[in-house]
Design a protein around this nucleic acid. Structure first.
Lengths: 113, 113
DNA sequence: CGGCATCCATGACGATACTG
DNA sequence: CAGTATCGTCATGGATGCCG
């Protein structure tokens, strides 16, 4: 286990343009259905939502509960283990917010989105 | 300043397959020259190293010191502000390491690299 | 030594249509 | 409702060559 950089491991869970947004929703809502997530994350396509959910599920970050009925019903929620990501996400959010301010001090003119 | 997700901001500093490896080196070495970094990060190309260093510099994470001499000498180091990333990187590394173990418990057979 | 310019491969991501 | 399948696009990253 080369300890050089398990940062990659953590990053792989979070990058992808959508994963952390999905997690943000699930952390704050406990349980959400597929379309509920889709509605909550503007711009995401079914394809992306599906694939990202699958990856998060495979990493035991979220869990998927299927109700075999018509119409189908699928619920997503954080796993207990997945909750361990919250402090990290909070820390990143916090650092990110501060970074915006920092850049603002450095370049007062520019407006970074 | 929509607070929905400044996680992106933090991620943008760290993703890119190389940025956090560069930071890892600079955090542990104080000052490094261009080729020193290149040697320390197996597989990286000049192009990538250059571009990533530029981006980190623009975000005030690292600083670049040029010595106008022949042959050229350029030194890179963390900025004081850049040091504020260290706790975050440590937390990510720590979580990542633990995640490897966690996956190992879930899927004892598989060997994730 | 420390770059920059150019070209190219890959895969992440998006748009759209179809299905149980 | 919650997907799968297919196709297209574009940014990221890689290989190579030239330069002060």
């Amino acid at each position: 286990m080369e300890s050089s950089c398990q940062v990659d491991t953590a990053l792989e869970i979070l990058v992808g343009k959508w994963k952390h947004k999905i997690l943000f929703q699930l952390i704050n809502h406990d349980v959400m259905r597929f379309n509920e997530l889709k509605r909550a994350i503007p711009g995401i396509t079914q394809k992306m939502l599906t694939s990202q959910l699958r990856e998060l599920e495979q990493n035991d970050i979220i869990q998927r509960q299927v109700y075999p009925q018509i119409p189908p019903k699928v619920e997503y929620s954080m796993t207990p283990y997945g909750e361990s990501l919250k402090p990290l996400l909070d820390a990143m959010h916090s650092w990110g917010s501060n970074h915006i301010k920092h850049l603002d001090q450095l370049f007062p003119q520019t407006n970074e989105q």
